[in-house]
């Protein structure tokens, strides 16, 4: 019984995605299950559109940078919050968690206003700043949880065995929180890669992939985006599988 229910739930959750994948092989230019045959024409069409290629590049680059920098800053902040009592500790907490509460539309708009005031004209830098603000709360949350489960006596023990404070972190703490960091990076990458609403305010001529897709469906209504979405799903699935294979997903999420 419970099995049947959970199967139904999974089907219900997966249905739209399955429909998209089916549509991507359609022979006609309408969405829907292709009863009358399969074709790869929409996949071919993808490559005639340069906005998708440049959008993918921008999105991957942006998500990659936001992930690396965000995880470094976020882990350091989590470290400070968990291990030390200092004035302003609550402030860090609030600052980092703030973006979780502010609606994305408001965040995008306020970024636009702020960056205009600061006359920062470089789109990629602006986008990176925005995406850092977006990914940081998640990284900090995940890493705070991880560090709280790591016994602080481990670092103390390492020091008494002759490790400098820095070596104690490198040889003991980092390997122990590596799994959690991988989880945080995965989460950050996905958050940044998928972001649409706030990003919309800052793009100019260069569009990220979600925005390129949006711009496409505003004028066209053929299954090209279904083909793109299918490829993205496969890509994401690949990343998740690879990570869970390397780390054990249960432990990444835990």
């Amino acid at each position: 019984m419970i099995r049947a229910v959970s199967l139904l739930v999974i089907l219900f959750l997966a249905a739209p995605n399955l429909l998209i994948i089916a549509s991507s092989f359609s022979t006609t230019s309408s969405f829907g299950i292709p009863w009358d045959g399969l074709s790869l024409q929409w996949y071919a069409n993808l490559f005639t559109r340069s906005t998708f290629g440049s959008g993918l590049l921008l999105s991957v680059g942006l998500a990659g940078l936001a992930t690396l920098i965000g995880t470094a800053i976020g882990t350091a902040a989590a470290f400070a919050v968990v291990r030390y009592r200092f004035p302003g500790r609550g402030l860090i907490n609030a600052l980092v968690m703030g973006p979780l509460i502010v609606p994305e539309v408001v965040m995008g708009l306020s970024f636009l206003i702020m960056l205009n005031a600061m006359l920062l004209g470089i789109t990629i830098v602006n986008l990176l700043l925005l995406h850092l603000v977006i990914v940081l709360p998640f990284v900090v949350r995940v890493m705070i949880g991880n560090l709280q489960r790591t016994d602080p006596d481990l670092e103390a023990a390492a020091q008494l065995l002759g490790a400098t404070p820095a070596r104690a972190v490198v040889h003991v703490t980092l390997p122990i929180i590596a799994r959690g960091m991988t989880g945080a990076m995965l989460l950050a990458f996905v958050m940044s890669f998928h972001n649409f609403t706030a990003t919309l305010f800052l793009v100019s001529s260069e569009a990220t992939l979600p925005i390129a897709i949006y711009q496409y469906v505003r004028t066209e209504s053929d299954p090209t985006v279904a083909a793109l979405s299918s490829l993205l799903m496969v890509g994401m699935l690949g990343i998740v599988l690879l990570t869970s294979r390397l780390m054990g997903l249960d432990k990444v999420v835990r």
Binding site: D153, L154, A156, Q159, L160, G162, T164, A168, P175, I176
Partner: peptide, 20 residues
């Protein structure tokens, strides 16, 4: 003197073995 130079041995209450 910093702890890593004191040459003091300590066994912690929960042993603090390195799990990895």
């Amino acid at each position: 003197v910093a702890p890593h130079r004191r040459n003091v041995g300590m066994v912690f209450q929960n042993y603090a073995l390195f799990p990895h």
